[in-house]
């Protein structure tokens, strides 16, 4: 009470002002939304979905879906809503479906994997970003979720590399990527797969065909993914 009356808490500083850091949930979404032909579902109430989709649309154009969870869904189990949503996407013949959980689903620890198992759809991936995680942790989770899709036995393509790191909502990713492609091509190197901005499901599947993985933002994300791929 004395501390309250003093008005300022020295231990926990005033956590106000502009808090403009994206979280692991943004990171995971941005990581998989770049896979153009796949479908991404944000397993969330509609508000979370709207905010994520609208804000990211300011940077890149893409499609994204949601399970539109209500309060009742969260309390009684969100599996049914998720199943309905994913079945509709399966009917659209998605080459891959990514399910990214939201904070409310992470709190209730909904059995999302159980729903996916029940649906028995081969290329359906669940990503559970850590609550309180950074955007880079989210991206890493997103990248790591792609590994089960990959064809380990893909025939190696000589003088080819994967570029790991560019995702949607990264500043200037398109221009940077084009410049990297140009520079690599000038020394006879082709880009096999970009993880993950503007890639396709087939490119993700054939990512192991590259001779080398290049992490272009190694201090942010991608190294753990590259090591696992290796």
């Amino acid at each position: 009470m004395d501390r309250l009356k003093a008005g300022l808490d020295n231990k926990k500083n005033l956590r106000v002002s502009e808090i403009h850091r994206p979280s692991a949930f943004e990171g995971a979404l941005w990581a998989v939304l770049g896979i153009k032909d796949a479908h991404t579902v944000f397993h969330s109430p509609s508000g979370c979905y709207i905010n994520q989709h609208q804000n990211a649309l300011m940077n890149d154009l893409f499609e994204m879906y949601t399970s539109n969870l209500s309060y009742a869904d969260i309390l009684h189990g969100a599996g049914e809503s998720l199943e309905k949503t994913v079945r509709k996407l399966i009917a659209k013949k998605s080459p891959a479906i990514f399910i990214v959980t939201s904070p409310t689903v992470e709190i209730t620890k909904d059995d999302v994997e159980g729903v996916v198992d029940r649906l028995n759809y081969e290329k359906c991936v669940v990503i559970r970003p850590p609550v309180g995680g950074t955007v880079h942790q989210g991206k890493e989770e997103g990248f790591l979720s792609l590994i089960p899709l990959m064809d380990e036995k893909a025939e190696k393509k000589g003088k080819s590399v994967n570029i790991i790191g560019p995702t949607y909502s990264v500043f200037n990713w398109k221009a940077d990527l084009e410049e990297l492609r140009r520079m690599l091509l000038s020394i006879g190197i082709t880009v096999n797969t970009v993880i993950s901005a503007d890639s396709t499901t087939q490119q993700i599947i054939s990512a192991p065909a590259a001779m080398l993985n290049i992490c272009i933002y190694p201090f942010d994300c991608g190294v753990a993914f590259a090591q696992k791929m290796q």
């Binding site: 808090i19 994206p22 979280s23 943004e26 979370c48 905010n51 994520q52 804000n55 904070p103 309180g132």
Partner: peptide, 9 residues
């Protein structure tokens, strides 16, 4: 939590 605050800001 963080994602809401970021998105809303």
């Amino acid at each position: 939590p963080q994602p809401c605050i970021y998105e809303i800001q």
